[in-house]
Design a protein around this nucleic acid. Sequence first.
DNA 1: CACGAGACCTGTTCGC
DNA 2: TGCGAACAGGTCTCGT
Length: 277
Amino acid sequence: MPELPEVETIARSLRDGQGDTPGVVGKTITGVNMYWEGSVETPTASEFKTRIIGQTIQSVGRRAKYFVLTLSEDTLLIHLRMSGDLLVGQAGESLADHIRASFTLDDRWQLAFNNPRKFGRLWLVADTTEQFAKLGPEPFDPALTSSVFWEMLQKRSRQIKPLLLDQGFIAGMGNIYTDEALHLTRIHPLTRANQLTLPQAETLLMNIRLVLEDGIRHNGSSIDWVYRGGDHQNHFKVYDRKGKPCLVCGTPIEKKVVRQRGTHFCPTCQPSPKEEV
DNA sequence: CACGAGACCTGTTCGC
DNA sequence: TGCGAACAGGTCTCGT
């Protein structure tokens, strides 16, 4: 579930509240239930609990696919990885089937970390420099102009799809939005980054922003049991459309594995680069 | 530096 | 219907 648009959507709902559920900003963490201690990356689970209790949530933000909760003393970072979700409800309520940790807020509400596959992690740190050191630019950073982006691509010989998934190259892209952006731009996923032309780089950056904005506008994509709320899954043009006609040219969409990830593309709109096949 | 494979985990869906 | 295999939105580490 969680690529940039889903993380952004959840971050906004945590900030602004949703229906009868209030936002979490301004609330104080009055208790912690840790159901799976492996959730905590740093510090130790017991230190995490001791240190976080009593801190007030001052803001909720996002960097790459991390939630950034600024607390009175520390910063709480949350990464959902493949199957996580964050839910707010009344304290004591059972919000989902795989809650690994929950935070009581003002003795009355709770913020729950649901994480079926246990890949997601929590960090409580005084300073986020270490965690964020290797991240590439945010896709919406105005400093990321098309010429900067093209120069970044020119320096890399990797295949474009795995490169876009690399959070150190650009932050926030995941499997769905990468396939969508490449399809829109008519670039084959195995094309070498440094083979792209300047116009292609410009269009690719524009389309990366477009697919992410569309995802956010639809409140993210809901697939399987993990995340409900968004409906961007109804707007996919290639992802999860294997065998179905390309919406541009009608050719059946193909799916192949690239670096262990299911990769969808239109063989007509996105012709193979020369050396590959 | 680039790449493939394997790990980390659990739940759902697919194929026979 | 049943059962194992394959697959899933992410990222890290190791060996080549």
